[in-house]
Nucleic acid binder design. Structure first.
Lengths: 158, 158
DNA sequence: GACTCAATTGAGACTCAATAACAATATAGC
DNA sequence: GCTATATTGTTATTGAGTCTCAATTGAGTC
Protein backbone atom coordinates (compact mmCIF):
# COMPACT_ATOMS: atom_id res chain seq x y z
CA UNK A 1 0.00 0.00 0.00
CA UNK A 2 1.35 3.36 -0.96
CA UNK A 3 1.13 6.17 1.50
CA UNK A 4 1.59 9.83 0.77
CA UNK A 5 2.17 12.00 3.76
CA UNK A 6 3.36 15.54 3.82
CA UNK A 7 6.93 15.79 5.00
CA UNK A 8 6.02 18.42 7.52
CA UNK A 9 3.98 15.92 9.52
CA UNK A 10 6.75 13.34 9.48
CA UNK A 11 9.29 15.90 10.60
CA UNK A 12 6.91 17.26 13.19
CA UNK A 13 6.49 13.84 14.74
CA UNK A 14 10.21 13.04 14.64
CA UNK A 15 10.95 16.36 16.29
CA UNK A 16 8.36 15.66 18.95
CA UNK A 17 9.98 12.31 19.76
CA UNK A 18 13.50 13.73 19.79
CA UNK A 19 12.55 16.64 22.00
CA UNK A 20 11.13 14.20 24.52
CA UNK A 21 14.30 12.09 24.40
CA UNK A 22 12.44 9.25 22.71
CA UNK A 23 13.72 7.18 19.83
CA UNK A 24 12.52 7.28 16.27
CA UNK A 25 11.73 3.65 15.58
CA UNK A 26 10.39 1.88 12.51
CA UNK A 27 7.35 0.77 14.45
CA UNK A 28 6.49 4.26 15.65
CA UNK A 29 6.83 5.66 12.17
CA UNK A 30 4.72 2.85 10.74
CA UNK A 31 1.99 3.55 13.26
CA UNK A 32 2.22 7.26 12.56
CA UNK A 33 2.03 6.60 8.81
CA UNK A 34 -0.94 4.30 9.26
CA UNK A 35 -2.79 6.92 11.29
CA UNK A 36 -2.36 9.46 8.53
CA UNK A 37 -3.30 7.02 5.79
CA UNK A 38 -6.73 6.50 7.35
CA UNK A 39 -9.28 8.88 5.91
CA UNK A 40 -11.85 8.07 8.51
CA UNK A 41 -11.95 7.46 12.22
CA UNK A 42 -10.16 4.37 13.40
CA UNK A 43 -9.87 2.18 16.46
CA UNK A 44 -6.64 0.91 17.99
CA UNK A 45 -7.30 -2.38 16.23
CA UNK A 46 -7.78 -0.67 12.86
CA UNK A 47 -4.51 1.14 13.43
CA UNK A 48 -2.70 -2.11 14.21
CA UNK A 49 -3.98 -3.65 10.99
CA UNK A 50 -2.92 -0.66 8.88
CA UNK A 51 0.46 -0.30 10.59
CA UNK A 52 1.26 -3.94 9.92
CA UNK A 53 0.91 -3.28 6.20
CA UNK A 54 3.83 -0.86 6.57
CA UNK A 55 5.81 -2.93 9.06
CA UNK A 56 4.57 -6.41 9.82
CA UNK A 57 6.51 -6.57 13.06
CA UNK A 58 4.25 -4.01 14.76
CA UNK A 59 2.53 -5.51 17.77
CA UNK A 60 -0.67 -4.62 19.53
CA UNK A 61 1.18 -3.44 22.63
CA UNK A 62 3.29 -1.05 20.61
CA UNK A 63 0.20 0.47 19.05
CA UNK A 64 -1.27 1.08 22.48
CA UNK A 65 2.06 2.52 23.60
CA UNK A 66 2.23 4.84 20.60
CA UNK A 67 -1.32 6.19 20.83
CA UNK A 68 -0.64 8.48 23.82
CA UNK A 69 2.39 9.87 21.99
CA UNK A 70 0.34 10.63 18.91
CA UNK A 71 -2.37 12.35 20.90
CA UNK A 72 0.12 14.22 23.07
CA UNK A 73 1.83 15.52 19.96
CA UNK A 74 -1.56 16.68 18.65
CA UNK A 75 -1.11 14.64 15.49
CA UNK A 76 -4.22 12.62 16.24
CA UNK A 77 -7.06 13.09 18.68
CA UNK A 78 -9.47 10.90 20.55
CA UNK A 79 -13.08 10.79 19.46
CA UNK A 80 -15.28 9.45 22.19
CA UNK A 81 -18.50 7.95 20.89
CA UNK A 82 -19.72 6.28 24.06
CA UNK A 83 -18.66 2.80 22.99
CA UNK A 84 -16.55 0.42 25.03
CA UNK A 85 -13.58 1.09 22.76
CA UNK A 86 -12.05 4.35 21.60
CA UNK A 87 -11.92 6.00 18.20
CA UNK A 88 -9.14 8.23 16.95
CA UNK A 89 -8.69 10.49 13.95
CA UNK A 90 -5.75 12.31 12.40
CA UNK A 91 -5.52 16.05 12.98
CA UNK A 92 -4.79 16.92 9.40
CA UNK A 93 -5.75 20.44 8.42
CA UNK A 94 -8.67 20.99 10.73
CA UNK A 95 -8.89 24.66 11.60
CA UNK A 96 -12.39 25.16 12.91
CA UNK A 97 -13.98 23.38 15.83
CA UNK A 98 -15.94 20.31 14.74
CA UNK A 99 -18.91 18.56 16.22
CA UNK A 100 -19.19 14.79 15.97
CA UNK A 101 -22.43 13.41 14.66
CA UNK A 102 -22.65 9.71 15.41
CA UNK A 103 -25.08 7.27 13.84
CA UNK A 104 -26.28 5.14 16.75
CA UNK A 105 -27.11 2.26 14.42
CA UNK A 106 -24.20 1.88 12.02
CA UNK A 107 -21.55 3.68 14.11
CA UNK A 108 -20.50 5.89 11.24
CA UNK A 109 -19.12 9.23 12.41
CA UNK A 110 -19.52 12.54 10.64
CA UNK A 111 -17.49 15.57 11.62
CA UNK A 112 -19.08 18.85 10.74
CA UNK A 113 -17.89 22.38 11.27
CA UNK A 114 -19.25 24.06 14.37
CA UNK A 115 -17.13 27.22 14.60
CA UNK A 116 -19.44 28.90 17.08
CA UNK A 117 -18.59 26.26 19.66
CA UNK A 118 -15.21 27.75 20.29
CA UNK A 119 -16.74 30.90 21.66
CA UNK A 120 -19.45 29.03 23.46
CA UNK A 121 -17.09 26.68 25.28
CA UNK A 122 -15.10 29.59 26.57
CA UNK A 123 -18.22 31.31 27.81
CA UNK A 124 -19.26 28.18 29.66
CA UNK A 125 -15.80 27.78 31.16
CA UNK A 126 -15.71 31.33 32.44
CA UNK A 127 -18.48 30.45 34.83
CA UNK A 128 -16.02 28.21 36.65
CA UNK A 129 -12.99 30.46 36.19
CA UNK A 130 -11.39 27.77 34.06
CA UNK A 131 -9.28 27.78 30.98
CA UNK A 132 -10.50 25.20 28.49
CA UNK A 133 -8.10 22.38 27.67
CA UNK A 134 -10.43 20.59 25.32
CA UNK A 135 -14.08 20.46 24.42
CA UNK A 136 -16.32 18.23 22.41
CA UNK A 137 -19.84 18.47 21.12
CA UNK A 138 -21.38 15.12 20.34
CA UNK A 139 -24.70 14.71 18.61
CA UNK A 140 -26.36 11.31 18.43
CA UNK A 141 -28.63 10.48 15.52
CA UNK A 142 -30.43 7.52 14.07
CA UNK A 143 -29.53 5.58 10.99
CA UNK A 144 -32.87 5.90 9.24
CA UNK A 145 -32.39 9.64 9.32
CA UNK A 146 -28.98 9.33 7.68
CA UNK A 147 -30.42 7.02 5.04
CA UNK A 148 -32.30 10.00 3.66
CA UNK A 149 -28.96 11.41 2.63
CA UNK A 150 -27.68 8.05 1.41
CA UNK A 151 -24.65 8.28 3.64
CA UNK A 152 -25.29 5.51 6.10
CA UNK A 153 -22.92 2.55 6.00
CA UNK A 154 -25.82 0.16 6.01
CA UNK A 155 -27.11 1.49 2.75
CA UNK A 156 -23.98 0.22 1.07
CA UNK A 157 -22.77 -2.51 3.34
CA UNK A 158 -25.86 -4.61 3.88
CA UNK B 1 -28.43 3.69 55.92
CA UNK B 2 -31.51 5.81 55.64
CA UNK B 3 -32.69 6.96 52.25
CA UNK B 4 -35.26 9.62 51.56
CA UNK B 5 -36.68 9.63 48.09
CA UNK B 6 -39.70 11.45 46.82
CA UNK B 7 -42.61 9.12 46.31
CA UNK B 8 -43.19 10.43 42.85
CA UNK B 9 -39.91 8.94 41.66
CA UNK B 10 -40.63 5.58 43.21
CA UNK B 11 -44.09 5.52 41.68
CA UNK B 12 -42.72 6.70 38.38
CA UNK B 13 -40.26 3.82 38.27
CA UNK B 14 -42.81 1.23 39.35
CA UNK B 15 -45.18 2.50 36.69
CA UNK B 16 -42.43 2.29 34.11
CA UNK B 17 -41.74 -1.34 35.00
CA UNK B 18 -45.40 -2.32 35.05
CA UNK B 19 -46.13 -0.64 31.75
CA UNK B 20 -43.33 -2.67 30.18
CA UNK B 21 -44.69 -5.87 31.70
CA UNK B 22 -41.68 -6.12 34.02
CA UNK B 23 -41.78 -7.06 37.65
CA UNK B 24 -41.20 -4.82 40.61
CA UNK B 25 -38.51 -6.71 42.51
CA UNK B 26 -36.65 -5.92 45.70
CA UNK B 27 -33.36 -5.82 43.82
CA UNK B 28 -34.61 -3.38 41.21
CA UNK B 29 -36.01 -1.09 43.86
CA UNK B 30 -32.78 -1.29 45.88
CA UNK B 31 -30.77 -0.33 42.81
CA UNK B 32 -33.19 2.46 42.04
CA UNK B 33 -32.99 3.69 45.63
CA UNK B 34 -29.21 3.55 45.59
CA UNK B 35 -29.06 5.59 42.39
CA UNK B 36 -31.14 8.32 43.96
CA UNK B 37 -29.20 8.29 47.21
CA UNK B 38 -25.99 9.22 45.36
CA UNK B 39 -25.48 12.95 45.24
CA UNK B 40 -22.67 12.71 42.74
CA UNK B 41 -21.88 10.75 39.65
CA UNK B 42 -21.41 7.06 40.15
CA UNK B 43 -20.09 4.03 38.33
CA UNK B 44 -21.81 0.67 38.03
CA UNK B 45 -19.52 -0.57 40.78
CA UNK B 46 -20.45 2.33 43.06
CA UNK B 47 -24.08 1.54 42.43
CA UNK B 48 -23.57 -2.12 43.33
CA UNK B 49 -21.94 -1.14 46.60
CA UNK B 50 -24.73 1.29 47.51
CA UNK B 51 -27.52 -1.07 46.45
CA UNK B 52 -26.09 -3.84 48.64
CA UNK B 53 -26.54 -1.60 51.65
CA UNK B 54 -30.26 -1.68 50.93
CA UNK B 55 -30.43 -5.33 49.87
CA UNK B 56 -27.32 -7.41 50.29
CA UNK B 57 -28.51 -9.99 47.80
CA UNK B 58 -28.04 -7.62 44.85
CA UNK B 59 -25.52 -9.01 42.40
CA UNK B 60 -23.29 -7.31 39.86
CA UNK B 61 -25.22 -8.84 36.96
CA UNK B 62 -28.48 -7.44 38.25
CA UNK B 63 -27.00 -3.96 38.50
CA UNK B 64 -25.87 -4.16 34.89
CA UNK B 65 -29.28 -5.47 33.93
CA UNK B 66 -31.04 -2.64 35.75
CA UNK B 67 -28.94 0.20 34.35
CA UNK B 68 -30.55 0.17 30.88
CA UNK B 69 -33.96 0.22 32.54
CA UNK B 70 -33.03 3.23 34.62
CA UNK B 71 -31.67 5.12 31.64
CA UNK B 72 -34.57 4.11 29.42
CA UNK B 73 -37.01 5.41 32.01
CA UNK B 74 -35.05 8.69 32.09
CA UNK B 75 -34.52 8.36 35.83
CA UNK B 76 -30.77 8.35 35.40
CA UNK B 77 -28.53 9.24 32.49
CA UNK B 78 -25.11 8.24 31.24
CA UNK B 79 -22.27 10.70 31.61
CA UNK B 80 -19.43 9.85 29.28
CA UNK B 81 -16.09 11.22 30.44
CA UNK B 82 -13.78 9.37 28.07
CA UNK B 83 -12.73 6.78 30.63
CA UNK B 84 -12.81 3.04 30.10
CA UNK B 85 -15.82 2.78 32.40
CA UNK B 86 -19.09 4.67 32.43
CA UNK B 87 -20.49 7.19 34.85
CA UNK B 88 -24.15 7.72 35.61
CA UNK B 89 -26.13 10.34 37.48
CA UNK B 90 -29.71 10.63 38.68
CA UNK B 91 -32.03 12.88 36.68
CA UNK B 92 -33.49 14.61 39.67
CA UNK B 93 -34.88 18.03 38.83
CA UNK B 94 -32.67 18.97 35.94
CA UNK B 95 -34.54 21.13 33.50
CA UNK B 96 -31.92 22.91 31.46
CA UNK B 97 -29.23 21.36 29.31
CA UNK B 98 -26.00 20.87 31.24
CA UNK B 99 -22.40 20.77 30.16
CA UNK B 100 -19.97 18.43 31.91
CA UNK B 101 -16.76 19.97 33.16
CA UNK B 102 -14.29 17.21 33.97
CA UNK B 103 -11.13 17.61 36.01
CA UNK B 104 -8.52 15.64 34.08
CA UNK B 105 -6.45 15.08 37.22
CA UNK B 106 -8.85 14.12 39.99
CA UNK B 107 -11.77 12.93 37.80
CA UNK B 108 -14.28 15.09 39.63
CA UNK B 109 -17.19 16.07 37.44
CA UNK B 110 -19.09 19.35 37.57
CA UNK B 111 -22.36 19.84 35.76
CA UNK B 112 -23.16 23.40 34.90
CA UNK B 113 -26.12 24.92 33.13
CA UNK B 114 -25.64 25.54 29.43
CA UNK B 115 -29.14 26.36 28.21
CA UNK B 116 -27.99 27.82 24.93
CA UNK B 117 -26.72 24.41 23.86
CA UNK B 118 -30.21 23.17 23.17
CA UNK B 119 -30.67 25.66 20.40
CA UNK B 120 -27.15 25.25 19.18
CA UNK B 121 -27.33 21.47 18.88
CA UNK B 122 -30.43 21.73 16.77
CA UNK B 123 -28.80 24.26 14.50
CA UNK B 124 -25.83 21.98 14.01
CA UNK B 125 -28.07 19.01 13.31
CA UNK B 126 -30.08 20.84 10.69
CA UNK B 127 -27.00 20.91 8.52
CA UNK B 128 -27.34 17.14 8.17
CA UNK B 129 -31.14 17.09 8.05
CA UNK B 130 -31.16 15.17 11.31
CA UNK B 131 -33.28 15.17 14.39
CA UNK B 132 -31.17 15.18 17.52
CA UNK B 133 -31.53 12.18 19.81
CA UNK B 134 -29.01 13.32 22.33
CA UNK B 135 -26.18 15.78 22.68
CA UNK B 136 -23.38 16.42 25.11
CA UNK B 137 -20.91 19.19 25.64
CA UNK B 138 -17.81 18.13 27.51
CA UNK B 139 -15.19 20.54 28.72
CA UNK B 140 -11.88 19.27 30.05
CA UNK B 141 -10.00 21.24 32.64
CA UNK B 142 -6.98 20.87 34.84
CA UNK B 143 -6.96 20.28 38.57
CA UNK B 144 -4.75 23.25 39.43
CA UNK B 145 -7.35 25.48 37.88
CA UNK B 146 -10.07 23.95 40.01
CA UNK B 147 -7.95 24.37 43.11
CA UNK B 148 -8.44 28.10 42.76
CA UNK B 149 -12.03 27.53 43.70
CA UNK B 150 -11.17 24.95 46.35
CA UNK B 151 -13.39 22.38 44.71
CA UNK B 152 -10.91 19.82 43.56
CA UNK B 153 -11.04 16.43 45.27
CA UNK B 154 -7.31 16.47 45.76
CA UNK B 155 -7.50 19.53 47.95
CA UNK B 156 -9.42 17.46 50.45
CA UNK B 157 -8.41 13.92 49.67
CA UNK B 158 -4.64 14.13 49.56
C1' DG C 1 -53.55 -18.41 51.39
C1' DA C 2 -51.85 -21.89 47.98
C1' DC C 3 -50.82 -22.83 42.95
C1' DT C 4 -48.62 -22.02 38.72
C1' DC C 5 -45.40 -20.48 35.45
C1' DA C 6 -42.75 -17.18 33.28
C1' DA C 7 -39.75 -13.41 34.61
C1' DT C 8 -35.92 -12.65 37.38
C1' DT C 9 -32.06 -13.64 40.04
C1' DG C 10 -27.02 -14.86 41.72
C1' DA C 11 -22.95 -17.28 40.79
C1' DG C 12 -19.55 -17.84 37.98
C1' DA C 13 -17.70 -18.40 33.30
C1' DC C 14 -16.69 -15.60 29.62
C1' DT C 15 -15.43 -11.57 26.27
C1' DC C 16 -12.57 -8.15 24.79
C1' DA C 17 -10.12 -3.66 25.01
C1' DA C 18 -6.34 -2.21 27.28
C1' DT C 19 -2.15 -2.77 30.35
C1' DA C 20 1.91 -4.96 32.63
C1' DA C 21 6.05 -7.97 32.94
C1' DC C 22 10.06 -9.41 31.04
C1' DA C 23 13.53 -11.24 28.07
C1' DA C 24 15.14 -10.11 23.43
C1' DT C 25 16.23 -6.45 20.16
C1' DA C 26 17.42 -2.06 18.08
C1' DT C 27 18.58 2.86 18.47
C1' DA C 28 21.53 6.98 19.24
C1' DG C 29 25.59 8.79 20.83
C1' DC C 30 30.25 7.83 20.96
C1' DG D 1 31.51 -0.77 15.26
C1' DC D 2 30.48 -0.55 20.49
C1' DT D 3 27.68 0.18 24.45
C1' DA D 4 24.08 1.55 27.42
C1' DT D 5 19.46 1.76 27.52
C1' DA D 6 15.02 2.72 25.35
C1' DT D 7 11.93 -0.04 22.87
C1' DT D 8 9.98 -4.07 21.28
C1' DG D 9 7.06 -8.57 20.85
C1' DT D 10 5.24 -12.19 23.40
C1' DT D 11 2.48 -13.62 26.77
C1' DA D 12 -0.04 -13.13 30.90
C1' DT D 13 -3.13 -10.22 33.28
C1' DT D 14 -6.55 -6.82 34.41
C1' DG D 15 -11.14 -5.13 34.75
C1' DA D 16 -15.62 -3.48 32.98
C1' DG D 17 -19.30 -5.46 31.11
C1' DT D 18 -22.03 -9.66 29.19
C1' DC D 19 -23.81 -14.32 29.04
C1' DT D 20 -25.50 -18.90 30.81
C1' DC D 21 -28.23 -21.58 33.49
C1' DA D 22 -30.19 -23.67 37.43
C1' DA D 23 -32.66 -21.86 41.35
C1' DT D 24 -35.88 -18.51 42.99
C1' DT D 25 -39.64 -15.31 43.18
C1' DG D 26 -43.46 -12.20 41.83
C1' DA D 27 -48.14 -11.69 40.35
C1' DG D 28 -52.20 -13.28 38.48
C1' DT D 29 -55.67 -17.09 39.37
C1' DC D 30 -58.21 -20.04 42.00
Amino acid sequence: MKIEIQDQYIESFKEFLTRKGLRVTNQRMAIFGAAFSCDNHFTAEDLLEQARKLDDSVSRATVYRALPLLTESSLIREVDVGKDYKYYTANKDVKTFQAQVICMDCEKIFEIDAPFMEWYGKTVAEKLLLSVEDQRLQVSARCDQLKLKGECNRVFAK
